[in-house]
Structure formats: C-alpha cells, structure tokens
Amino acid sequence: MSHKTDVAVIGAGPVGLFAIFECGMLGMRCHVVDALDAIGGQCSALYPEKPIYDIPAFARISGAELVERLEQQATPLKPVFHLGQRVEKLERLGEGFRLTTSKGAVIEAGAVIIAAGAGAFGPNRPPLAGIEAYEGQSDGRGVHYLVRRPEDFRGRRIVIAGGGDSAVDWALALHGIADHIAFVHRRDQFRAAPDSVARLRALDGKGLDIVVPFQLDALAGDSGRLEAVTVRSLDGETRRLPADALLAFFGLKSDLGPIATWGMELALHHLPVDPATCQTSQPGIFAIGDVATYRGKLKLILTGFAEAAAAAHAIFPLLHRGQPLHFEYSTSKGAPGTA
C-alpha cells in the first residue's frame, strides 16, 4: 500500500512521538515507522515502570506514563503508525523520498526524520522450537517481549523469564492482575534494582513462584495456543509450568540496519548532524535523539525534544519554498489539531 505524507518519522520512541507534535505545530503531517509492535521505544520495552526524574514539569514520571502522555499529545494530529516493521529501503524521489518497509508499505514524504535511538530495536528471542507460532497474539496469550496493556493479562497464568529490571518490574506490576506468575531465571541472583528484587522475593509463594535455577526448554500448546512452558536446570531436571503466556525479557538487540546504507556520514554507529537544524549529511534527512551526534551532545530525552523542534522548523521551508514561517508560541497559536 502506498502513502503520501509531509514527513516520515523513523522511530516511535518519546523523541519520535514529540516530533509528530512539533511537525503538527507547523501544519505538517507524519507517518511513523517502528520495528517494535508498540510505540514507546526503550521507555515501553525496557523500563516502563522505572521513574524518570529529568522531564520538565514532572518531578517523577514512569516511562509508560511519559509515552502515554506523548501519545495523547500527538493523537489530535492524526499520525499514521506502521509498527512491527522497519524501513528497508530509502530512495530520493525528486525533492522528496520514497521509503519501503519490511512489510511492503511504501511511504512518499517530503522529508525524513530519523529518531531511531541506537537503531532498530528487536527482541532477543529465546531459542525455542516453534516459538513463532505463539507470537503476535493480542489477548494476553502466547509469547510476548513487551507489555503494552497489563490488563490483557488479567486472570492469566504467566511465565516470566529473565533476571533484569524489565523482568522483575513486570513481575511486580502484574502480580495481582495475573492469576499466577512463575518467575524463571537461570540462577538465584538478579541484575535488577535491589529494592525491586527484595519485593519480588517477598511475594514468593503468594501468587508468584520464583523458579531457579532453571532455563526455558520448550513450549507446549495446540494451534498456536500456549498451554505450558517446560524449564530445565543445568542438572537436567525438568519442570512443566502451566501457562497461558510467556513474557521473555532477554533484552533488545539494536543496530542501524539499512540506515547505515543510505549514504549518510556515520560516526561510531551514530549520525553526525548540524546542531542548528539536525540535518544529516544528506539534505532532507534529519536525525534526532540518541542516534544523532554533534559536539557537546547530551544523550537526554529532553535534548531529543529540543532537536525535534529544531528539525521541524528546518523542514518547513523545504516543504513550503518561498512561504515565510511566522514563528508563534503555542500560548498564542493554540494546540494543533484541536480546532
């Protein structure tokens, strides 16, 4: 399917979501592509429950809440999301660009904003035979690598695998929502925050069982419907854990992927940009957030927010040649998309 838009945004993390708003303030529409099947980038996938302390006006906000508020801010601008796919090909098309995704979507845009963080993220899948048959279910069943809506798992029997912050945080968050949680890790030591680990251990035997030292061994079910997860110890002992869902938190892998082949200058897997405009070495292609680099760059979400505004203002004259841009503050202009 082909689409036409003003700006194509690659990456639906916090900075990419704010780019939708900043472009919308100038009357430009966006299509957004992300390799994950939900918006939010690292905030949703890695630390949805972790507090963030350096977002202006919020003394404390979780990654999930930040993404939710950015989504609310962007929604009136009617962005179109292409999730669970990445941009495989980018071609210059006259004064614009044609992007082709891994699912065959074709997007023609006047400019491109790359907000891909450290690159396209994808889950580290456990090496389990037939795991693909259980992926992609939306009813709180099957295999999942991130949690979009905790309520999807209400009343479910869940196996959570992993020993880091994401695994422990979601075990704590889903306790009391899920019918039962089996927490599987290969050793009785965890890489999560000590306070979180203490809370996890306090729940052992209370609707949550810590299953250590075990590793995932096999999945059992029928017609893609998960029924149990088999785990195995290093000594060969096996246990069968009844399960409606497996949440596997083994981290995310990231790389620039096809972005590295689009003819832009690279610097240690980052894209050097002009800090005044965030334009890369390729005219019409901009980079913001962690993927962008320049002298004095601070890798902070709030830095990315400012870069989104700079990129949007640099794109406007490219798409509206000869039309003056009269800058207005939002207090006088009003919120876009609400008229």
Rank of each mutant, 00 (worst) to 15 (best):
T277M: 01
F327C: 02
T5H: 12
A220M: 06
L234A: 15
L300F: 14
A59T: 10
L77M: 12
L36P: 07
T303L: 05
G322A: 14
G304S: 08
R60F: 01
A260F: 04
D244F: 10
I39E: 06
L318C: 14
G24T: 11
T5F: 07
G140W: 03
L83T: 12
F286M: 02
L203I: 11
V211Q: 02
E108Y: 11
F121V: 01
Q42R: 09
K4P: 00
L36I: 13
I288M: 03
H31T: 15
K297Q: 02
G205I: 09
D37M: 10
G207E: 11
Q279N: 02
D235K: 08
F58N: 11
I158L: 15
R191C: 03
L203E: 08
L226H: 09
S233P: 01
A173D: 04
L90N: 04
Q189C: 05
D217R: 02
V15D: 06
A120L: 12
E237F: 01
A45F: 09
F183Y: 15
G251Y: 13
I288D: 07
R321C: 08
V80Y: 09
L226K: 07
D244I: 05
Q73P: 01
T101C: 10
F305R: 10
A306M: 05
S2I: 08
D235C: 00
D179P: 00
P56L: 13
G13I: 05
T277D: 01
Y134H: 10
E49D: 09
G96L: 13
A193R: 09
A248E: 03
D54R: 08
A59H: 11
G117F: 08
Y329Q: 14
G140A: 10
E22S: 13
F183T: 11
A133W: 03
A111C: 09
H180G: 00
L93A: 15
D255E: 15
R239M: 10
L234C: 02
A202I: 04
M1V: 11
S254T: 15
A116I: 03
D139N: 14
D235S: 09
V106S: 06
T238C: 04
A314M: 06
V143D: 04
A292C: 00
L252S: 03
